[in-house]
Design a protein around this nucleic acid. Structure first.
Length: 260
DNA sequence: TCCCAGGGAGGAT
DNA sequence: ATCCTCCATGGG
């Protein structure tokens, strides 16, 4: 008896499937395993109250109040997490969702649940490694097609072992994943946080950078690398959470009227 | 038409 | 190390 967890849909319509294969009866042990896995990927074990009480400056406190209970959702599959992170660069969330949906439809496995629900799994590294850049472009991924193909080939060949990265320290894992085409500082930290669960990872995108510059550095221009170091020095193992809350807060209140 | 979107690579300085 | 330009694509 085995189980697999699939996260589906979009930010607006998230859904989650647990697929059990094997015998018809579900053992108590399996129930426990699935339960534990779900607690983990939904971040339900993360002690948010510790986070909220530990950091109380005006900015982060406002973010807490805006999104109480917001959690870091872990990916259930490392390869999917890597490709999704690569796709997220320089685009909008809606187009990002669109890209992933297309990739799954074109290269994933079609699954129909007993209740009739239809969805597609995320393709394995081999499937994407064998896809031509030209064919990938039909998934509306633009210039990222080349990144996706090369990254998939690296993983398929075993040149980078994603699963073994979680055994290493954050810095070593980061250095290795940065060698993958299409993976820069921000994409690397997305994968390290949401894929591998390194809570020290802090993805610094345009929003987090501008917000940190405005709120913590009086509007001075700070490089993304320095912003990352600042976040990690300040929030340590809560850096991933800090960047998540700052990101959503920045987008909610905008960048001009941040002193609320 | 121009600019931006949860950036990265390659090059020049 | 830091700064530039280009990359494909859709929406404002």
């Amino acid at each position: 008896m085995k189980y697999e967890v699939y996260q589906e849909g979009s930010v607006d319509k998230p859904s989650l499937f647990v697929i059990l294969t094997g015998s018809k009866t579900i053992s108590v042990d399996l129930k426990k395993t699935v339960h534990t896995h779900l607690l983990h990927i939904l971040g339900l074990k993360d002690p948010l109250n510790e986070f909220y009480s530990k950091f109380k400056d005006d900015i982060i406190s406002n973010a807490f109040n805006c999104f109480p209970g917001l959690r870091v959702i872990r990916a259930s599959n490392n390869f999917e997490s890597l490709i999704c992170s690569i796709c997220s660069q320089n685009t909008t969330v809606s187009r990002w969702n669109q890209m992933i949906t297309m990739i799954k439809k074109c290269y994933g496995e079609r699954v129909i649940l007993p209740d009739g629900t239809l969805f597609y799994t995320f393709p394995n590294p081999e499937s994407l490694a064998n896809a031509s850049v030209n064919a990938l472009t039909t998934c509306q991924v633009g210039y990222r097609a080349e990144y996706i193909e090369k990254a998939a080939q690296m993983i398929a060949k075993g040149e980078v072992e994603l699963d073994s990265l979680s055994q290493k320290c954050y810095e070593d894992a980061r250095e290795i994943i940065l060698t993958v085409p299409g993976v820069g500082p921000k994409v690397a930290d997305c994968f390290l946080l949401y894929g591998l669960g390194f809570m020290k990872a802090a993805p610094i995108d345009v929003w987090v950078q501008r917000i940190v510059q405005t709120w913590y550095f009086k509007g001075c221009n700070i490089s993304r690398e320095k912003v990352r170091k600042f976040i990690q020095h300040r929030f340590d193992n809560w850096s991933g959470y800090a960047s998540l809350y700052l990101f959503h807060y920045a987008r909610k209140v905008g960048i001009t009227d941040c002193y609320v």
